[in-house]
Each structure stands twice: as structure tokens, then as C-alpha cells.
Design a protein around this nucleic acid. Structure first.
Lengths: 143, 143
DNA sequence: AGTCTTTCTTGACTCGTTCAAGATAAGTGG
DNA sequence: CCACTTATCTTGAACGAGTCAAGAAAGACT
């Protein structure tokens, strides 16, 4: 996946194509669920001396354009991912902090159908499953 | 609801009964979905000069004991509520920030039944519905 | 009451994130 | 291809929710 893809994406989103944005976009694609600090490092591996501010700005711009999505499990810093528009959710391991993607519960977006939402017009449901990942479950059982 | 109730709750939870904790517990009951700063103010109305640290400590202790629950909509600070153990969720208005309780989607805790959670043992699902509250929907339509 | 342990007070501090001002470079028309 | 306009980036400071630490205070048990 050459930079051309990302350039294209930026153009189509009406964003200017800049080196920092390409680096950040590539970093998010390469490191799903990464926090900002990791993304700064990853972006610097592609483009030395990018300021942290540029990364924050880019992430905001990309988030606004829908090219990346951000989420923030309680007790964690902001995390970003490039998988957007498919209404998937996340499962977080209480023990090791691992995060995996989880497709919508019953398969057909039931997450948007709150039975009684008090007249709210709901347009997005953000779901985080808390639990124990397979690895930690095994470790805990072995204790 | 005299303080006796809260005293009882603390005792049963195995926590020491202290003035700050009673004040914080009462504050959370009186102001559902309030953020920490509001709770500090509310607690000070009941017990002047409580330190913010005592409020933080109390909230942590109460959360650990299951007497209060904390949640944190993206972009917001921590919020607390006294309604626990019934697996309800929240709807947040993007426009005015209002938060209301929403009972579980289909009525029978489907929120815990992620179809494919990659082997995760899920013990809690945290759901936040984002949308527009009735008031803001009307205001927006009138524009 | 006396003693022990938990909890509270005070105050400093961390860290993720944001703000601001000036420098730089992407896009656009000539 | 060059100049122009404006969005974006750099640098560096600032902010604020939340945490840490040391000593003082006050529950709980005997």
C-alpha cells in the first residue's frame, strides 16, 4: 500500500496533503488501537522531527474527516484506529489492557436500537466490552 | 432519607463511616451524572472544607465497593451516579451535553452477548448512545 | 479511655492535551 | 513556472483533571 492510497484518501476528504498527515495516517493504519504517544513515535519513524502538535492536529483533522476514529476506554488515554464506518466495537482486557475489535452484537446493528431512549435521536452507539482476554484467562486459571 | 441509610450502606460495604464519605455519597445521590467538580461543591454544601482529595478518595472507595458507578463519555471528565447493579446505559446529547439513563436495549441484557468476542470473557458492557436530546432536536428543527 | 489503622488535609506535581504566535508550505490563478 | 492566499506546522508555554506523599486526625476494636 503505497502512499498514493493515503494521498488519495486525504484528497477525497477535502484535506490538504501534507507530510505529517501522510505519516500519521500511515501510523494509524500500521498500529490499530495505538495511543497518541505511540503514534507520535510511529509517525517520527516515517518523518523525523514531526512535532507532537502536528500529530494532534492531524489526528483531529483525520477524525473530523472520518478517516480515523478515536475512542477512549475509561482510565486510558485516547486511542485511534483506521477502521471506520462499520460500527464495530471493542473488547478491553482488564488484566493486560489488550484491545480487540468486536463486530456488532447480533450482527445487524442492534446497538442503535435502544428501546426507550427518552426521545433521543440516537446516531451512534459506543460500546466497550470489559473482560478478560484468552491469554490472561489461562494465566489466571493456572494460578 | 436520613443519613442513617448511607451510614448503613457504608457499613455493609465494609467501609469506615466518615463525614466526607457520607457527604460524597449524599452528593452523588442528589446529583446523578455529576462530574467531580460539581460533587466537590455539593459535598462542601453538606460538609464545609472537605478537601478535593478526600472527595476523590471517597469516590474511589465507593466505586470499589460498588456503591457508586463512574463513567466517562469521550471528551468529558469523570461522572458518577448512585444507580448501580442494573446494567443500564447512558444517552448523551451532542448538542447540550445532557445525559439520561437508558435501560438495556432489548430489555434482556443483550449487551453482554457479543457474538464473537475472540475468546474474551466479557463481564461488563459499557454503552454510550450519542445523539440529540428532544429539546435540542426541537431547537435545531426551528432554525 | 487507649491503641492501632485507615482516612483526611495540605500542597506539590505529573501528564495528556490544548492554546498562541510566527514560520512554512500546499493549493490556485496568472 | 511563479506569486499569492490560506491552511497547516513548529516551538514553547500553559492548562486542568487527577495523582502522589507526609504528617495530622479520627474511626474501630479492646
Amino acid at each position: 500500500m503505497p502512499d498514493v492510497d493515503f494521498t488519495q484518501q486525504l484528497r477525497e476528504a477535502g484535506l490538504r496533503v501534507t507530510r505529517p498527515r501522510l505519516a500519521v495516517l500511515a501510523a494509524v493504519h500500521a498500529h490499530p488501537h495505538a495511543d497518541t504517544e505511540s503514534l507520535i513515535s510511529a509517525a517520527r519513524a516515517l518523518l523525523a522531527d514531526v512535532s507532537h502538535q502536528a500529530v494532534y492536529d492531524s489526528l483531529h483533522a483525520l477524525t473530523g474527516a472520518g478517516l480515523v476514529r478515536s475512542f477512549k476506554p475509561a482510565g486510558s488515554v485516547a486511542r485511534y484506529e483506521a477502521r471506520t464506518g462499520d460500527n464495530h466495537h471493542h473488547a478491553v482486557c482488564r488484566s493486560c489492557g489488550a484491545i480487540v475489535d468486536v463486530d456488532c452484537a447480533v450482527g445487524h446493528v442492534p446497538c442503535l436500537t435502544a428501546s426507550d431512549s427518552r426521545g433521543f435521536v440516537v446516531d451512534e452507539a459506543e460500546v466497550i466490552y470489559w473482560g478478560t482476554c484468552p491469554d490472561c484467562a489461562i494465566t489466571a486459571a493456572a494460578t
